[in-house]
Design a protein around this nucleic acid. Sequence first.
DNA 1: CAGCAATATGCCCATGTGGTTATATACCGG
DNA 2: CCGGTATATAACCACATGGGCATATTGCTG
Lengths: 111, 111
Amino acid sequence: MESSFAIIAEPNRRAILSLLASSERSVGELERRLRIPQPSVSKHLRVLRDAGFVESRVDAQRRVYRIRPEPLMEVDAWLAPFRRFWSAHVDALERHLDRMAEAPPKKGKRR
Amino acid sequence: MESSFAIIAEPNRRAILSLLASSERSVGELERRLRIPQPSVSKHLRVLRDAGFVESRVDAQRRVYRIRPEPLMEVDAWLAPFRRFWSAHVDALERHLDRMAEAPPKKGKRR
DNA sequence: CAGCAATATGCCCATGTGGTTATATACCGG
DNA sequence: CCGGTATATAACCACATGGGCATATTGCTG
């Protein structure tokens, strides 16, 4: 598992990070909120921790996880050269997301 | 291949996008610049196009590819809730990247 | 110390994906 | 029309990874 990009390619991991963005949480909380089996949560947290996305604090039997910003900063930095493409027209994203919503993921669409 | 995040998880695809960020390029150009076999470049371009990251223009036998911003905007938008973690201390990224550079990707590092 | 709660690990399997090689297709110049 | 160039597609394989289940570990409480 290499880059920060590969880490956040996993939907459940992104969900975990998004939850931790608002506040730190224990494994059990994440498990309940996301409806993901506990071993799976622990596995993803392990990956996230090894990659530096989160760190844990011990609270009795609980392990409380919180965000570490550095790897996400890295992603943010990579995006920089592309921002010039949209810094102007801000609502293109909205249109794009709308299109994603309706369009069933087509294959082999020629252009 | 689902999310935009999965698409940019691949290093060669990120390299292609980074090259296209500065200007549009033909398949051959990408092949030479990146030292990647041609079928591989075409495959990645196919994935990128299907996911909306690039579009192509025909120039004689050449296909010239250029960036389409929407999927990257999506990634940028996902990052928004995390920005509060680093909008203050800007140089944490630099320290992080330094650490990445020296530290050989260790396994099982406890915290 | 027993027993329970919370979390981490190990193992196995199914699946997806990138690399590679060979081949097909498209377009050009002569 | 031919040969060559540029790109796309197909078929195959090796490998990593996420899910699921069972089990190990750790710490609290009575």
